[in-house]
Amino acid sequence: MSEPILEVSGLTACYGMISALKGIGFYVNDNEIVGIVGPNGAGKTTLLESIAGSMHIKEGQINFLGHQIERWPVLKRRQLGLMLVPQEGNIFPLMSVKKNLEVSVILSNRAKKEELIDRVYKLFPVLWEKRRQIANTLSGGQQKMLAVGIGIASNAKVMLIDEPSIGLAPKLVTKLFETLKKIKEDTRTTIVLSEQNIKVLNIADRLFGLEAGEIRFDEKTENLSRDVVKDLYLGSIS
């Protein structure tokens, strides 16, 4: 087993007096899909935002590709290869689809830029069809694809996605998850996603159970019984 490329230890984060994460240890191996599961308020979003740098942490260490990054600003983490696709506010609403993607490749060089945008259009052909459309006029599902597309265009080594399935029809969830798996296989991107949808079992290599800011389990997916996960940690069933 190789060294983890992302490792979090003793992570504590608070909102005012309320602690959202109580000393979490968490790791991700190269080219893995890790699902963070747990009910609302478990601390899933806080964990992802702490890693990406958009949330201040109180204590703990975050090691990414051999660097201690817990005090780094968002931009520096981004340059090293981390990207967070937030649950909400994850598109530029008044720009066309094309422009959304063009601005998301800002850190790549010219040749790479086109390749990345092409990759997004290949994975989500509907975005190519609607490339001239203003982003906030897309359907909910299409907006979600654009959000993930922005994540792909950013060419991150590790892509963190916060609850991608929320608000999507069951059929679209299956499709989106298949696409995520394809992204992992084609581009060797490591994906960490927080989820409440049971279908995450189909794509994740490992599941990390979070409840009230504490770890409940950390298991390879094949060792987990579907019902246990469903009963304890997943709210929505589809």
Partner: peptide
């Protein structure tokens, strides 16, 4: 590119930061 990053920043500051502007 500069103009696009202006627009991005004005429309969604948090995401603009996340994508590296």
């Amino acid at each position: 590119e500069i103009g696009k990053s202006w627009q991005a920043t004005s429309q969604n500051l948090k995401l603009a930061k996340l994508i590296g502007i």
